[in-house]
Protein backbone atom coordinates (compact mmCIF):
# COMPACT_ATOMS: atom_id res chain seq x y z
CA UNK A 1 0.00 0.00 0.00
CA UNK A 2 2.76 2.42 0.96
CA UNK A 3 4.68 1.60 -2.16
CA UNK A 4 1.51 2.21 -4.11
CA UNK A 5 1.06 5.64 -2.56
CA UNK A 6 4.70 6.50 -3.20
CA UNK A 7 4.36 5.44 -6.77
CA UNK A 8 1.23 7.48 -7.31
CA UNK A 9 2.86 10.50 -5.65
CA UNK A 10 5.87 10.18 -7.85
CA UNK A 11 3.60 9.94 -10.84
CA UNK A 12 1.75 13.04 -9.68
CA UNK A 13 4.99 15.01 -9.44
CA UNK A 14 5.93 13.97 -12.94
CA UNK A 15 2.47 14.90 -14.09
CA UNK A 16 2.86 18.36 -12.54
CA UNK A 17 6.08 18.85 -14.46
CA UNK A 18 4.38 17.78 -17.65
CA UNK A 19 1.50 20.12 -16.92
CA UNK A 20 3.87 23.02 -16.34
CA UNK A 21 5.65 22.27 -19.58
CA UNK A 22 2.40 22.09 -21.50
CA UNK A 23 1.18 25.31 -19.93
CA UNK A 24 4.44 26.96 -20.79
CA UNK A 25 4.21 25.74 -24.32
CA UNK A 26 0.71 27.08 -24.71
CA UNK A 27 1.50 30.48 -23.33
CA UNK A 28 4.98 31.06 -24.66
CA UNK A 29 5.80 28.64 -27.39
CA UNK A 30 2.63 28.27 -29.45
CA UNK A 31 2.20 31.99 -30.15
CA UNK A 32 5.76 32.12 -31.40
CA UNK A 33 5.27 29.08 -33.54
CA UNK A 34 2.15 30.71 -34.88
CA UNK A 35 4.32 33.57 -36.11
CA UNK A 36 4.14 36.15 -33.36
CA UNK A 37 7.26 38.12 -32.75
CA UNK A 38 8.69 38.54 -29.26
CA UNK A 39 7.36 42.08 -29.25
CA UNK A 40 3.85 41.07 -30.12
CA UNK A 41 3.88 38.42 -27.46
CA UNK A 42 5.23 40.81 -24.89
CA UNK A 43 2.47 43.20 -25.76
CA UNK A 44 -0.07 40.55 -24.93
CA UNK A 45 1.45 40.11 -21.52
CA UNK A 46 0.89 43.71 -20.69
CA UNK A 47 -2.66 44.11 -21.75
CA UNK A 48 -4.26 46.90 -23.71
CA UNK A 49 -2.34 49.71 -25.39
CA UNK A 50 1.14 49.51 -23.93
CA UNK A 51 3.99 51.85 -24.59
CA UNK A 52 7.12 50.84 -26.46
CA UNK A 53 9.17 50.96 -23.30
CA UNK A 54 6.74 48.72 -21.47
CA UNK A 55 6.96 46.18 -24.23
CA UNK A 56 10.72 46.18 -24.16
CA UNK A 57 10.73 45.83 -20.37
CA UNK A 58 8.30 42.94 -20.40
CA UNK A 59 10.15 41.27 -23.20
CA UNK A 60 13.30 41.47 -21.22
CA UNK A 61 11.70 40.43 -17.93
CA UNK A 62 10.06 37.38 -19.36
CA UNK A 63 13.15 36.61 -21.39
CA UNK A 64 11.14 36.46 -24.56
CA UNK A 65 14.20 37.40 -26.52
CA UNK A 66 16.07 34.36 -25.27
CA UNK A 67 16.05 30.75 -26.47
CA UNK A 68 13.08 28.61 -25.52
CA UNK A 69 14.83 26.44 -22.95
CA UNK A 70 16.08 29.52 -21.13
CA UNK A 71 12.56 30.86 -21.10
CA UNK A 72 11.29 27.60 -19.65
CA UNK A 73 14.03 27.68 -17.07
CA UNK A 74 12.96 31.15 -16.00
CA UNK A 75 9.38 30.02 -15.89
CA UNK A 76 10.13 27.05 -13.65
CA UNK A 77 12.62 28.97 -11.58
CA UNK A 78 10.00 31.61 -10.98
CA UNK A 79 7.57 29.05 -9.63
CA UNK A 80 10.11 27.37 -7.41
CA UNK A 81 12.37 30.21 -6.30
CA UNK A 82 10.58 33.39 -7.16
CA UNK A 83 11.57 36.03 -9.68
CA UNK A 84 12.59 39.61 -9.80
CA UNK A 85 11.22 41.97 -12.41
CA UNK A 86 13.05 45.10 -13.38
CA UNK A 87 10.42 47.63 -14.30
CA UNK A 88 12.61 50.59 -15.11
CA UNK A 89 12.00 52.89 -12.19
CA UNK A 90 11.26 50.10 -9.70
CA UNK A 91 12.28 46.54 -9.17
CA UNK A 92 9.58 44.13 -8.12
CA UNK A 93 10.21 40.89 -6.38
CA UNK A 94 7.74 38.16 -6.97
CA UNK A 95 7.94 35.67 -4.08
CA UNK A 96 8.52 31.98 -4.21
CA UNK A 97 5.62 30.35 -5.93
CA UNK A 98 5.70 33.05 -8.54
CA UNK A 99 2.78 32.25 -10.78
CA UNK A 100 3.47 35.33 -12.82
CA UNK A 101 3.22 39.08 -12.47
CA UNK A 102 0.47 41.22 -13.86
CA UNK A 103 2.28 44.06 -15.53
CA UNK A 104 -1.00 45.74 -16.09
CA UNK A 105 -2.09 45.95 -12.47
CA UNK A 106 1.46 45.86 -11.17
CA UNK A 107 0.59 42.95 -8.97
CA UNK A 108 2.06 39.55 -8.48
CA UNK A 109 -0.51 36.88 -9.34
CA UNK A 110 0.13 34.49 -6.45
CA UNK A 111 -0.92 36.73 -3.50
CA UNK A 112 -4.06 37.55 -5.43
CA UNK A 113 -4.74 33.86 -5.95
CA UNK A 114 -4.15 32.97 -2.32
CA UNK A 115 -6.59 35.60 -1.20
CA UNK A 116 -9.17 34.10 -3.52
CA UNK A 117 -8.59 30.39 -2.82
CA UNK A 118 -10.63 30.41 0.43
CA UNK A 119 -13.62 31.83 -1.41
CA UNK A 120 -13.55 29.23 -4.14
CA UNK A 121 -12.72 26.47 -1.68
CA UNK A 122 -15.65 27.45 0.54
CA UNK A 123 -17.95 27.40 -2.42
CA UNK A 124 -16.67 24.09 -3.74
CA UNK A 125 -16.52 22.27 -0.42
CA UNK A 126 -19.99 23.29 0.70
CA UNK A 127 -21.53 22.45 -2.61
CA UNK A 128 -19.65 19.15 -2.74
CA UNK A 129 -21.01 18.01 0.60
CA UNK A 130 -24.53 18.90 -0.48
CA UNK A 131 -24.41 17.26 -3.85
CA UNK A 132 -22.66 14.15 -2.65
CA UNK A 133 -25.18 13.54 0.11
CA UNK A 134 -28.26 14.33 -1.89
CA UNK A 135 -27.02 12.68 -5.05
CA UNK A 136 -26.08 9.42 -3.39
CA UNK A 137 -29.18 9.20 -1.25
CA UNK A 138 -31.48 9.94 -4.14
CA UNK A 139 -29.57 7.58 -6.39
CA UNK A 140 -29.74 4.71 -3.94
CA UNK A 141 -33.44 5.15 -3.28
CA UNK A 142 -34.15 5.31 -7.00
CA UNK A 143 -32.06 2.23 -7.64
CA UNK A 144 -33.77 0.19 -4.98
CA UNK A 145 -37.20 1.04 -6.31
CA UNK A 146 -36.64 1.33 -10.02
CA UNK A 147 -39.58 2.64 -11.99
CA UNK A 148 -41.38 3.59 -8.79
CA UNK A 149 -43.01 6.96 -8.29
CA UNK A 150 -40.02 8.26 -6.33
CA UNK A 151 -37.61 7.03 -8.91
CA UNK A 152 -39.44 8.84 -11.68
CA UNK A 153 -39.86 11.98 -9.61
CA UNK A 154 -36.23 12.13 -8.57
CA UNK A 155 -34.96 11.39 -12.01
CA UNK A 156 -37.25 14.06 -13.42
CA UNK A 157 -35.89 16.61 -10.98
CA UNK A 158 -32.39 15.42 -11.77
CA UNK A 159 -32.99 15.93 -15.45
CA UNK A 160 -34.21 19.45 -14.78
CA UNK A 161 -31.16 20.06 -12.62
CA UNK A 162 -28.85 19.15 -15.45
CA UNK A 163 -30.79 21.02 -18.06
CA UNK A 164 -31.39 24.32 -16.29
CA UNK A 165 -28.48 26.66 -16.73
CA UNK A 166 -26.71 27.88 -13.66
CA UNK A 167 -27.19 31.55 -14.41
CA UNK A 168 -30.93 30.93 -14.52
CA UNK A 169 -31.39 28.92 -11.34
CA UNK A 170 -28.74 30.91 -9.51
CA UNK A 171 -30.09 34.29 -10.47
CA UNK A 172 -33.63 33.21 -9.76
CA UNK A 173 -32.76 31.88 -6.31
CA UNK A 174 -30.83 35.00 -5.57
CA UNK A 175 -33.70 37.19 -6.63
CA UNK A 176 -36.19 35.33 -4.52
CA UNK A 177 -34.18 34.70 -1.37
CA UNK A 178 -32.10 37.81 -1.10
CA UNK A 179 -34.38 40.41 -2.58
CA UNK A 180 -37.99 39.29 -2.28
CA UNK A 181 -37.57 37.34 0.92
CA UNK A 182 -34.21 38.48 2.19
CA UNK A 183 -33.19 35.56 4.33
CA UNK A 184 -29.74 35.13 2.85
CA UNK A 185 -26.91 37.60 2.76
CA UNK A 186 -25.26 38.70 -0.44
CA UNK A 187 -21.71 39.50 0.51
CA UNK A 188 -19.18 36.84 1.24
CA UNK A 189 -17.95 36.62 4.84
CA UNK A 190 -14.88 34.47 5.53
CA UNK A 191 -15.39 31.37 7.61
CA UNK A 192 -12.84 32.54 10.13
CA UNK A 193 -14.75 35.71 10.81
CA UNK A 194 -18.25 34.39 11.27
CA UNK A 195 -19.11 30.81 10.38
CA UNK A 196 -22.83 31.38 10.51
CA UNK A 197 -22.65 34.35 8.21
CA UNK A 198 -20.28 32.45 5.98
CA UNK A 199 -22.75 29.63 5.55
CA UNK A 200 -25.64 32.03 5.22
CA UNK A 201 -24.11 34.00 2.40
CA UNK A 202 -22.86 30.98 0.54
CA UNK A 203 -25.91 28.81 0.93
CA UNK A 204 -27.67 29.85 -2.25
CA UNK A 205 -24.52 29.42 -4.29
CA UNK A 206 -24.01 25.99 -2.79
CA UNK A 207 -27.52 24.93 -3.62
CA UNK A 208 -27.40 26.21 -7.16
CA UNK A 209 -24.12 24.48 -7.81
CA UNK A 210 -25.17 21.32 -5.99
CA UNK A 211 -28.39 21.10 -7.98
CA UNK A 212 -26.38 20.73 -11.13
CA UNK A 213 -23.96 18.19 -9.73
CA UNK A 214 -26.31 16.17 -7.56
CA UNK A 215 -28.39 15.51 -10.64
CA UNK A 216 -25.37 13.92 -12.26
CA UNK A 217 -24.42 12.06 -9.10
CA UNK A 218 -27.91 10.76 -8.55
CA UNK A 219 -27.89 9.26 -12.01
CA UNK A 220 -24.40 7.85 -11.55
CA UNK A 221 -25.28 6.34 -8.21
CA UNK A 222 -28.51 4.95 -9.53
CA UNK A 223 -26.94 3.16 -12.45
CA UNK A 224 -23.96 2.00 -10.38
CA UNK A 225 -26.27 0.71 -7.71
CA UNK A 226 -28.59 -1.02 -10.17
CA UNK A 227 -25.63 -2.75 -11.69
CA UNK A 228 -24.10 -3.72 -8.37
CA UNK A 229 -27.33 -5.14 -7.05
CA UNK A 230 -27.29 -7.54 -9.98
CA UNK A 231 -23.84 -8.81 -9.11
CA UNK A 232 -23.32 -12.36 -8.01
CA UNK A 233 -21.86 -11.33 -4.68
CA UNK A 234 -25.11 -9.62 -3.77
CA UNK A 235 -26.89 -12.92 -4.35
CA UNK A 236 -24.29 -14.59 -2.14
CA UNK A 237 -24.86 -12.03 0.60
CA UNK A 238 -28.58 -12.75 0.45
CA UNK A 239 -27.96 -16.48 0.41
CA UNK A 240 -26.15 -16.07 3.73
CA UNK A 241 -29.38 -14.83 5.20
CA UNK A 242 -28.33 -11.22 5.71
CA UNK A 243 -31.10 -8.72 6.19
CA UNK A 244 -31.69 -6.64 3.12
CA UNK A 245 -30.39 -3.47 4.75
CA UNK A 246 -26.94 -4.97 5.29
CA UNK A 247 -26.97 -6.35 1.80
CA UNK A 248 -27.61 -2.92 0.37
CA UNK A 249 -25.31 -0.92 2.60
CA UNK A 250 -22.44 -3.24 3.28
CA UNK A 251 -22.26 -5.10 0.02
CA UNK A 252 -24.03 -2.96 -2.54
CA UNK A 253 -23.24 0.61 -1.66
CA UNK A 254 -19.57 0.12 -1.09
CA UNK A 255 -19.07 -1.27 -4.56
CA UNK A 256 -21.37 1.21 -6.21
CA UNK A 257 -19.62 4.15 -4.59
CA UNK A 258 -16.07 3.43 -5.65
CA UNK A 259 -16.43 4.70 -9.19
CA UNK A 260 -18.14 7.74 -7.74
CA UNK A 261 -15.07 8.52 -5.65
CA UNK A 262 -13.16 8.92 -8.87
CA UNK A 263 -15.66 11.23 -10.48
CA UNK A 264 -16.06 13.18 -7.27
CA UNK A 265 -12.35 13.80 -6.89
CA UNK A 266 -12.03 15.04 -10.41
CA UNK A 267 -15.05 17.31 -10.13
CA UNK A 268 -13.85 18.79 -6.88
CA UNK A 269 -10.40 19.34 -8.31
CA UNK A 270 -11.84 21.10 -11.31
CA UNK A 271 -14.10 23.28 -9.17
CA UNK A 272 -11.22 24.39 -6.98
CA UNK A 273 -9.65 25.78 -10.10
CA UNK A 274 -12.56 28.18 -10.26
CA UNK A 275 -16.32 27.94 -10.59
CA UNK A 276 -16.55 30.64 -13.20
CA UNK A 277 -20.28 30.99 -13.67
CA UNK A 278 -21.31 30.51 -10.06
CA UNK A 279 -18.76 33.01 -8.87
CA UNK A 280 -19.95 35.54 -11.41
CA UNK A 281 -23.61 35.00 -10.63
CA UNK A 282 -23.11 35.35 -6.89
CA UNK A 283 -20.41 38.01 -7.15
CA UNK A 284 -17.90 35.90 -5.27
CA UNK A 285 -14.33 37.02 -5.64
CA UNK A 286 -12.88 33.61 -6.27
CA UNK A 287 -10.43 32.07 -8.66
CA UNK A 288 -12.98 31.81 -11.42
CA UNK A 289 -13.78 35.47 -11.23
CA UNK A 290 -10.09 36.24 -11.38
CA UNK A 291 -9.80 34.20 -14.55
CA UNK A 292 -12.71 36.10 -16.04
CA UNK A 293 -11.00 39.33 -15.10
CA UNK A 294 -7.84 38.15 -16.83
CA UNK A 295 -9.75 37.31 -19.94
CA UNK A 296 -11.74 40.52 -20.15
CA UNK A 297 -8.63 42.60 -19.44
CA UNK A 298 -6.62 40.50 -21.84
CA UNK A 299 -4.13 40.09 -19.00
CA UNK A 300 -2.21 36.95 -19.88
CA UNK A 301 -0.26 36.49 -16.61
CA UNK A 302 -3.51 36.15 -14.66
CA UNK A 303 -4.81 33.52 -16.98
CA UNK A 304 -1.51 31.70 -16.84
CA UNK A 305 -1.59 31.75 -13.03
CA UNK A 306 -5.13 30.40 -12.84
CA UNK A 307 -4.34 27.71 -15.37
CA UNK A 308 -1.37 26.52 -13.37
CA UNK A 309 -3.32 26.54 -10.13
CA UNK A 310 -6.24 24.68 -11.64
CA UNK A 311 -3.94 22.07 -13.09
CA UNK A 312 -2.29 21.70 -9.71
CA UNK A 313 -5.63 21.09 -8.01
CA UNK A 314 -6.66 18.53 -10.57
CA UNK A 315 -3.42 16.63 -10.19
CA UNK A 316 -3.70 16.65 -6.41
CA UNK A 317 -7.33 15.58 -6.53
CA UNK A 318 -6.32 12.81 -8.83
CA UNK A 319 -3.69 11.63 -6.39
CA UNK A 320 -6.16 11.66 -3.53
CA UNK A 321 -8.65 9.72 -5.63
CA UNK A 322 -6.08 7.10 -6.50
CA UNK A 323 -5.25 6.55 -2.86
CA UNK A 324 -8.89 6.44 -1.80
CA UNK A 325 -9.66 4.02 -4.57
CA UNK A 326 -6.90 1.72 -3.46
CA UNK A 327 -8.17 1.93 0.09
CA UNK A 328 -11.61 0.92 -1.06
CA UNK A 329 -10.70 -1.76 -3.55
CA UNK A 330 -7.97 -4.16 -2.49
CA UNK A 331 -7.47 -5.29 -6.05
CA UNK A 332 -5.99 -1.93 -6.96
CA UNK A 333 -3.20 -2.25 -4.44
CA UNK A 334 -0.58 -3.76 -6.63
CA UNK A 335 2.87 -4.08 -5.32
Amino acid sequence: MISYILRRTFAAVILLLVVSAVTFAIFFLLPRLAGQTADQLAQQYIGKSPSKADIAAVKHNLGLDQPVYVQYWHFIKGIVAGATYDLGPTTVHCDAPCFGYSFKNHQAVWPELTSRIPVTASLAAGAAVLWLLSGVVVGVISALKPRSFFDRLFMGVALAGVSLPMFFTGKLAQLIFTVQIPIFGRTYVPLTENPAQWANTLFLAWCSLALLYSAIYARLTRSGMLETMNEDFIRTARAKGLVERSVVVKHGLRSALTPIITVFGMDLGLLLGGAVITESVFSLHGIGEYAVQGITDNDLPKILGVTLLAAFFVVIANLVVDVLYAAADPRVRLS
Partner: peptide
Protein backbone atom coordinates in the same frame (compact mmCIF):
# COMPACT_ATOMS: atom_id res chain seq x y z
CA UNK B 1 -25.86 -22.33 -1.72
CA UNK B 2 -22.66 -22.27 -3.71
CA UNK B 3 -22.42 -20.70 -7.11
CA UNK B 4 -20.81 -21.22 -10.44
CA UNK B 5 -18.22 -18.50 -10.48
CA UNK B 6 -16.63 -18.17 -7.06
CA UNK B 7 -14.80 -15.05 -8.13
CA UNK B 8 -17.85 -12.98 -8.85
CA UNK B 9 -19.81 -14.65 -6.07
CA UNK B 10 -17.48 -13.31 -3.40
CA UNK B 11 -17.31 -9.65 -2.60
CA UNK B 12 -14.04 -8.36 -4.04
CA UNK B 13 -13.56 -5.75 -1.30
Amino acid sequence: MIFQDPLSAMHPY
